[in-house]
């Protein structure tokens, strides 16, 4: 924001110079108006008017938002499961594992599927990756349509949220 001030110089009766500063002067005021005000102020006093300075201050500070959080890199080895690629073993579907690599610091989440197909998902650390695997309890689910769900990581102080869509077909 640009601001304007004036300094009115005058001389007092003993010959000493005196100054009167006024801040928050309208930047749109003309020089003549400011000088006239300086003269009026001095005229109300015993001092003798000398000069008026106009000071325009332009604030050059750059205001910016906090640095944008980086989007972490999230890659998935499998984004399309087929139910047929799993076989049940004590309630756990053994087969394709979706391995995620992620370089952020968020918490993993598995989004809600649009329909409940009776599948559950678990995520576990698998070496350097994070594995996401569906499983079921009881009888094997049947899929009549493709189910898409999100696997992602929450936003943190350091990273944006990110997610990957994973589809499951019959």
């Amino acid at each position: 924001m640009a601001t304007t001030s004036i300094i009115v110089n005058s001389t007092d009766t003993s010959g000493k110079s005196a100054q009167k500063a006024m801040t928050c002067v309208n930047p749109d005021a003309t020089n003549a108006q400011l000088a006239a005000l300086g003269q009026m102020i001095t005229a109300a006093s015993n001092n003798t008017y000398v000069e008026t300075f106009r000071i325009n201050k332009i604030n050059c500070d750059l205001e910016s938002d906090a640095p944008a959080k980086p989007t972490p890199t999230l890659t998935a080895t499998v984004t399309n499961y087929s139910l047929a690629s799993f076989e049940s073993d004590n309630g756990e579907m053994i087969g394709s594992t979706c391995n995620l690599t992620y370089n952020g610091d968020g918490d993993i989440f598995i989004g809600k599927a649009p329909i409940d197909v009776g599948l559950r998902f678990k995520a576990f650390k698998n070496g350097a990756s994070i594995a996401v695997k569906p499983f079921y309890i009881g009888s094997a689910p049947t899929l009549t349509e493709t189910v898409t769900f999100k696997v992602g990581f929450t936003e943190t102080a350091n990273y944006k949220a990110c997610s990957v869509d994973i589809t499951l077909t019959a």
Binding site: A18, M22, C24, V25, A29, L37, A44, S45
Partner: peptide, 30 residues
């Protein structure tokens, strides 16, 4: 305003400065 004239007519002086400041909107609120 320091050192005002001893003979100053406060009302008249204040009125002239006040009306000039208002007329030209010279001073802004800080």
């Amino acid at each position: 305003i320091d050192n005002p004239k001893t003979s100053i007519n406060l009302g008249a002086a204040a009125a002239s400065i006040g009306s000039y400041v208002k007329e030209h909107n010279i001073l802004l609120g800080d």
